[in-house]
């Protein structure tokens, strides 16, 4: 799912015109600080209330979603998520005004009228996509060989705060990748693993930019006939990715900052 966050005065009005310019399923997410706690569901009722029609029309209300949760939940089902009023680490963000944002600032303008729709379309189409494990699993299940698959194995690599209990905490890892060559090598690994007997679909994704303690970094998904080849292939997949794909990791702990390859030689 490709994402774009727009932050600052006047940006909410850009969401609908921008959505109309995109091909595919588009979700919009707006900040609304006026929703009272317990809305719809009532203080003592369920935490989430879905209303679903026969034609697939639905509304929902709830009390306990974070912005991260919403973005992850949209990722398997939408091609685009357009957001106003929220930013987060790695989220491509266009800012109007002088607000500081945690996301990747890709444009900044003094006034919303300075932004062109063509430029925003280009920004959303070229930005790094938001990929989740669930999205990759859904894509694997859509394989033409899904009828012959009885197993999906997945690997998730995440930021480990401490290797030993006494270690200083790792706060963030920052990943840099050799664009193009990294994608080619990942595609080659996927292709070679898919050539194995009983392995039908292999998908990998590695996040780049700043990834915080506890967040996911890398996913490998294998759709296979049986569990044995699924487990073997998912292990070989992550091992080959770590050995062969040009991605570089800088670690920031409570006290230090260093390139990981310089500590592990």
């Amino acid at each position: 799912m490709r994402t774009l966050s727009l932050v600052g005065p006047g940006t909410a009005d850009l969401l609908d015109p921008l959505a109309a310019r995109l091909d595919g399923r588009v979700a919009t997410v707006r900040r609304d600080d006026g929703i009272p706690t317990g809305t719809e569901t009532g203080e003592d009722a369920a935490d989430t209330d879905y209303r679903l029609g026969d034609d697939g029309a639905w509304t929902a209300a709830g009390t306990d979603d974070s912005f991260d949760d919403v973005l992850d939940r949209l990722a398997p089902d939408y091609d685009y998520a357009l957001v106003t009023g929220f930013s987060r680490l790695r989220l491509p963000t266009v800012v109007v005004g002088d607000e500081a944002v945690p996301g990747d600032e890709i444009r900044r303008a003094a006034d919303a009228s300075d932004l062109s729709l063509d430029d925003l379309v280009d920004a959303v189409e070229t930005a790094e996509p938001h990929v989740t494990l669930e999205a990759l699993v859904d894509e694997a299940k859509a394989s033409e060989y899904a009828d012959r698959s009885g197993a999906i194995a997945t690997f998730t690599g995440r930021v480990r705060a401490k290797d030993d209990a006494d270690d200083e905490r790792t706060e963030v890892l920052e990943f840099e990748k050799y664009e193009g060559v990294a994608a080619d090598r990942m595609a080659r690994i996927e292709r070679e693993l898919e050539a194995r007997e009983g392995v039908f679909d292999v998908r990998m994704h590695h996040r780049v930019g700043v990834v915080a303690d506890g967040e996911d970094i890398v996913f490998v998904v294998v759709l296979a006939g049986h569990r044995t080849e699924a487990f073997r292939t998912v292990e070989d997949g992550i091992n080959r990715l770590k050995d062969e794909v040009p991605i570089f990791k800088k670690e920031t702990t409570e006290a230090d900052e260093f390139w990981v390859h310089e500590r592990s030689q």
Binding site: G157, Y178, V181, E244, P246, I247, F248, W259, H261, Q265
Partner: peptide, 10 residues
């Protein structure tokens, strides 16, 4: 031409 140290993804 690209020059880089040992890879360290994951």
């Amino acid at each position: 031409l690209a020059l880089f140290p040992p890879v360290s993804g994951g």
